[in-house]
């Protein structure tokens, strides 16, 4: 009788020890992520829907003309492109170096608004989303990127439709229907056409030559 409760306790001891080891190992192997997202995906989505993160090319020009120390442009392109030409007063922080410590320290200063731009609009969009989700809220995106700043005529439409797809499709359908009507007017069986086509022209030529000889 005294043996049984003892063995029960031994079993419990082993179980608790294993449990402890499991939890300790678990906690140790989690490893803290280097960067922690502070904005949930859902919040990020509603941020995007607000669309207040965009700086239009015109607004950017005004910002550059005025001596605004609260706004800084950040050029995400590589050094080479940056040296060829960049917006006045822009910092050069190539895309892949954005999350380096020095840069993140720089971004801590929330009194300054950073306007990101790359060559094209999309080049700054992703980095902006990454930074925004990490909790940096003092960032904006230059609409159209560097290309739009250089070329005034570049169209910027957001996601509004430029074309009427249905009418374009109908146009093409009509054109192709007309074309097919011409080509398919008498639909002859396909196997026949090949044989005939190859043979006949030769005959015609031969006959004509013979006739000329006459």
């Amino acid at each position: 009788m005294p043996d049984r409760p003892l063995s029960n306790i031994r079993r419990l001891t082993i179980a608790v020890a294993a449990f402890t080891a499991f939890i300790v190992i678990g906690l140790l192997t989690i490893g803290k992520p280097k960067f922690k997202y502070k904005v949930s995906s859902e919040d990020m989505l509603s941020q995007i829907m607000k669309a207040d993160y965009l700086v239009s090319p015109e607004a950017a020009k005004e910002l550059m003309a005025g001596d605004n120390t609260q706004v800084k442009f950040v050029d995400l392109r590589n050094k080479y492109d940056f040296n060829i030409g960049h917006l006045e007063g822009a910092l050069n922080i190539p895309n892949h170096t954005l999350l380096e410590k020095d840069n993140l320290n720089l971004f801590e200063d929330t009194s300054i608004t950073y306007v990101l731009y790359g060559q094209e609009h999309l080049d700054a969009n992703g980095p902006w989303m990454v930074l925004r989700q990490l909790g940096y809220s003092n960032f904006k995106v230059l609409q159209g990127g560097y290309a739009a700043q250089m070329a005034d005529s570049l169209r910027i439409t957001g996601d509004a439709a430029i074309y009427d797809y249905t009418s374009i499709l109908k146009e093409a359908e009509k054109e192709i229907y007309d074309l097919q009507k011409v080509t398919e007017a008498p639909p002859p069986p396909k196997p026949v056409k090949k044989k005939v086509v190859k043979v006949v022209p030769k005959k015609v030529v031969e006959e004509v030559e013979e006739e000329e000889g006459c």
Partner: peptide
Amino acid sequence: SADQLLLEL
């Protein structure tokens, strides 16, 4: 992770 995401971008 954010740095991986940036790399993929």
